[in-house]
Amino acid sequence: MDSVTDHTRADRASRAMLAAVFEPGDPVAGSLLRSEGAAGTLRIAREAGRVPGLGEGYDELWRARARAAPDDLGEQIVAESEELGMRILIPGDPGWLIGLDQLGDRAPYALWVRGKPGILGHDAPARMGIVGARAATPYGADTAADIAGDLAQQGMHIVSGSQYGIDAAAHRAALLAGGVTIAVVPSGLDRLHPAGNTSLLGHVAESGQLVSELPPDTEPSPHRTRQYSRIIAALSDGVLVPEASPNSSSFRILSEARALNRPIGAIPGPVTSPTSTGCNLLIQGDGAQLIIGSGDARTFLLSGEARLDRQLDLANETSALHRQTEVRNNGPDR
Rank of each mutant, 00 (worst) to 15 (best):
218 T>P: 06
22 F>K: 01
238 G>W: 02
51 V>D: 01
194 P>S: 09
288 A>S: 09
52 P>M: 10
134 R>L: 07
206 E>N: 11
243 E>P: 13
166 I>H: 01
156 M>E: 04
191 R>V: 11
6 D>N: 12
317 E>Y: 11
210 L>F: 12
285 G>N: 09
308 L>G: 04
308 L>T: 15
102 Q>F: 05
242 P>S: 11
62 W>N: 01
189 L>T: 05
4 V>L: 15
95 G>Q: 07
299 T>P: 00
105 D>N: 05
215 P>C: 00
7 H>T: 14
148 A>R: 02
257 A>P: 06
13 A>W: 10
239 V>Q: 08
96 W>I: 07
255 S>E: 15
288 A>W: 02
83 E>S: 14
120 L>G: 07
202 G>S: 05
145 A>H: 12
23 E>L: 04
330 N>K: 09
280 N>Q: 09
168 A>H: 10
301 L>I: 12
200 L>E: 03
252 R>F: 09
239 V>A: 03
29 A>V: 08
181 T>Y: 02
238 G>D: 00
203 H>I: 03
123 D>I: 02
251 F>N: 11
320 A>P: 07
23 E>Y: 04
320 A>W: 03
253 I>Q: 03
95 G>V: 05
285 G>K: 04
31 S>V: 06
166 I>R: 01
69 A>C: 09
295 G>I: 06
29 A>H: 07
131 V>P: 06
221 S>Y: 04
29 A>N: 07
319 S>Q: 06
4 V>N: 09
187 S>C: 01
22 F>I: 05
201 L>D: 06
166 I>A: 03
193 H>Q: 11
3 S>I: 14
80 E>S: 14
212 S>G: 08
218 T>Y: 09
89 L>H: 02
192 L>F: 10
195 A>C: 04
130 I>E: 12
165 G>C: 04
55 G>N: 09
104 G>F: 05
24 P>W: 02
86 M>Q: 14
111 L>M: 10
286 D>F: 15
290 L>E: 03
298 R>M: 09
49 G>H: 08
94 P>C: 08
266 A>D: 03
49 G>Q: 05
233 A>H: 05
83 E>N: 09
151 L>P: 00
194 P>W: 03
118 G>T: 11
214 L>T: 00
201 L>Y: 03
152 A>E: 00
190 D>L: 00
119 I>A: 00
255 S>F: 03
115 G>C: 01
271 V>G: 15
89 L>Y: 06
53 G>H: 01
137 T>W: 11
329 N>F: 14
139 Y>W: 14
159 V>G: 00
96 W>P: 12
52 P>F: 13
43 R>I: 01
25 G>Y: 13
262 R>F: 11
117 P>M: 09
283 I>G: 11
210 L>P: 01
19 A>S: 15
88 I>R: 07
193 H>K: 04
123 D>R: 15
41 T>P: 07
90 I>T: 15
78 V>G: 02
164 Y>L: 13
268 P>W: 00
322 H>Q: 15
307 R>W: 06
7 H>I: 13
223 H>T: 02
234 A>R: 07
117 P>F: 06
38 A>L: 08
282 L>V: 04
186 P>V: 03
269 G>Q: 00
31 S>M: 08
31 S>I: 04
203 H>D: 15
24 P>C: 12
229 S>D: 09
124 A>S: 08
263 P>A: 14
182 I>F: 07
39 A>L: 10
257 A>L: 05
57 G>E: 08
237 D>T: 02
